[in-house]
Nucleic acid binder design. Sequence first.
DNA 1: AGAAGCAGCCAAAGCGCTTTGAGGAATGGG
DNA 2: CCCATTCCTCAAAGCGCTTTGGCTGCTTCT
Lengths: 341, 341
Amino acid sequence: MNLKQLSELLGLSQTTVSRALNGYPEVNRETRERVLKAVRETGYRPNKAAQRLATGKAGSIGLVMPTSPGNSSDVHFSEFLTGLGEEALRHDFHFVLTPADPNDEVGALRRLAASGNVDALFVNYMRGHDPRLEMLKSLSMPFLVHGRSIGSEPDYPFLDLDNEAAFYDATKLLLQLGHRHFALLNGPIYLDFAIRRRNGMEAALAERGLALDETCTSHTPMTDEQGLFAMERILQLEKRPTAVLCSSTVLALGAVRAINQAGLKLGEDISLIAHDDVLTLLKPESFTVPLTTTRSSLRAAGVRIAERLIGEIKHTETFPAQELWKAELIVRASTGVAPAE
Amino acid sequence: MNLKQLSELLGLSQTTVSRALNGYPEVNRETRERVLKAVRETGYRPNKAAQRLATGKAGSIGLVMPTSPGNSSDVHFSEFLTGLGEEALRHDFHFVLTPADPNDEVGALRRLAASGNVDALFVNYMRGHDPRLEMLKSLSMPFLVHGRSIGSEPDYPFLDLDNEAAFYDATKLLLQLGHRHFALLNGPIYLDFAIRRRNGMEAALAERGLALDETCTSHTPMTDEQGLFAMERILQLEKRPTAVLCSSTVLALGAVRAINQAGLKLGEDISLIAHDDVLTLLKPESFTVPLTTTRSSLRAAGVRIAERLIGEIKHTETFPAQELWKAELIVRASTGVAPAE
DNA sequence: AGAAGCAGCCAAAGCGCTTTGAGGAATGGG
DNA sequence: CCCATTCCTCAAAGCGCTTTGGCTGCTTCT
């Protein structure tokens, strides 16, 4: 069933039927109702490809899905995707996912844009001085960045968490509790958020004349296994830190296990603050010792990003180009006063 | 840059250029090379929407992404997606993801098919007597099911794990170790795999004249939290089971925590076998007490499914319509001889 | 030498939709 | 009674590609 058949069925022209469907004003109310009724009865659905060809609008937003063995099936990514999905559903949009070799993300992005399959692009997992930015700016297609790229001019639309502030605040709390020896279990160092969190932490330490010890720092993919390994290593150091910051509750999962295995008490012998992306899988409050966290929902970020992108495509709304969200610092039992030396 | 412009540039007809690009034989070798060179220089990319409209082929496979609060951002789902992605990348295919209200999966699927945006459909999270099957069969579009639907005629193409056998084998091993009191932490009871795993377990028990105790059984979303709660409850029962089967390592994560908190020793006081989907996030061998598992990679299943679907769309290959994979039973330290009564 | 075959190219139709520019039927004003 | 105005409707032109069905000129066969 296509437009032509439908219009013949109704004894109307294709134009009128099309207008009736797309809510143009110059159609008689009665006619419109007749059309809508026929649509319901016949189950007619406009062919998207044709619609796209005619309008240039695809009703979909493109994203490149990272597929490296490294960050494969990242919980953080799928949590975010869920948020995007929720919002897209409300607008009858969908995503076009292009899986990409991580060495060719720029190429994947370019192909996606050129394919004519999408109206807007989205990128995340930003790196320092990210090469994708230049490419996106050169395209004449709306895009939105989740995160930022340190080292690049901030002249692009983004939504980011204030990672510096989050880890600055967390560190400050630990300092106030008397801690002096810190460890950091961070994400991969080339990622922007990891750089900023580290910066935030260092800034807070510097205020007290302290510096982050390299041996107490690890930059790894954010899995519980890596958290375990890193923490085990750190706990064997001569000068053991009493406070740990984790870039994810997933890392914290492993770290806590290492701490338990070492016979140390979380919140007493050692304090830990993790960043909580509000993963459905892993709630900081359901750890044996509930975790103190800096919290910001990845899912909510997904919703917001979809909202902005769709708004932009439809030209219905204008948004601030750049948003910086604040994380909440939520104190639970994993933080306590520093033990006496 | 479109075909017309390109052909004018070359002084050829659109037909010839199109043929040259699509590998048709009736083009002079020399001409073809000229065309390819021009494409490289101009960066011409065919408009997918037009291509699709003309051919009816979209180069993409559609899937409905579950977005309920319940199974949101499911690690299992994204592990699988990664596999799909890997394979799709090799063939320059992409996915169209439609997020769907879980109460309207059939509708979402229908819309996706009708949109003309996809060449093939994929579904998973099958339920008993799943209504989507009828709908898929009525469509004239290739589809593939991950899992099966108990209660429906198995006359559709699927790829499934032999869940019955996996849990039958696991139970049998535990029986051989002398266990008599069993618990099962399973996924939602309406899901096909959960039903089959339970069946497999019951079959093995029945051979020894045993039955599964309802109070020792839980059917929940597969999160560590649910695993924790369920196990805590079960451990408080008067007649405590000595052997536990978990439908996921994620559930096991919580269950193991409950076991530890109860002061019980895994592999001595209580034995546990979990099904391992080979999640990158959660390796059974890196548990404090490494877990005995039934193993089958979700990601590998994703790869295979993409391979089959794409092959079908391109009509290049024929595959067996139905595949049943066997899980491997891998013994580690979480299983041991049943403790004396 | 004429018929037949073939390689290589092209013009034009068509995929299903939107949108432009115009026309026909009422209505109201002069 | 005629013209202007408003409301509704339509035919036709595109969107950028593939594909059908020729057409041309050259080689090969009889």
